[in-house]
Amino acid sequence: MQTALIVGIILALLWFIEKMLGTAMVIRPIVVSTIIGAALGDVQTGLLVGATLELVFMGFIQVGGAVPPDVLVGAGLGTAYAIIGNSGAEVALALALPIALLAQSIKVLVFIIRSWFMNYAMKLAKAANIKGMINLNIGGLLLHCAMYFIVGFAAILFGSNAVEAFVNNIPDAIMNGLEVAGGLLPAVGFALLLLPMMTKTNVLYFLLGFSLLAYMNIPILGITLFGVVLAFIIVYEFNGKNGDSDTTDKEDEEELFDV
């Protein structure tokens, strides 16, 4: 009961902070799992699970109106179940994915409900009632938080035993497979990130970053700095000196803005 309350409150609170701070990334698994871990008395597991899930969920970001799998609920509940059941990151991963997919519908539901509010918002605007508009905006956010609280609370209260029994019955072969899958899944995330960015003309930059690490083992921060320098050279030194660069610019841009 207490655990269920804690998890429910953390989910609701993190979403509240995320949207009060203008999408500050506090609902990313690396943060969520750590906090759940700390609250349930196992920060280490939380950190490790968070690192694993962060990679897997890398590409699931909300861009535009499309609703991605819900990383907050997936990471939060996956971590909680893993810690309650004394199991590791593979179990959290196995649980977080289906949960995140199911929880996607929470957001869709909230977005629909809040669409109904918009008539009222227009009325407030027509009356220049700014206080009313601010309250409605916060109300819409609290509605979303409340949904997260209910889902988190109910899932832990009613689901823990069932989940534990289920996890204990997973055969070892499947668990090994999940570990392999855990190493592969970041590929999906990275591919999703690449989708709006990578074109035939700029695929070489991706290969460059990959090879710098694969062959030379340069740390990512170092590769980032090389990237910044290279970007400056290409954008400022070469631009305008050859006539073709403008057209490629535009192509790249269109790809980018299709997001």
């Binding site: 990130l193 991706f206 970053g209 690490l213 990512i220 590769i223 990237g227 290409i234």
Partner: peptide, 10 residues
């Protein structure tokens, strides 16, 4: 885009 692609590659 250049920086992003290199970092994602790495």
């Amino acid at each position: 885009t250049i920086v992003g692609l290199m970092v994602i590659g790495a």
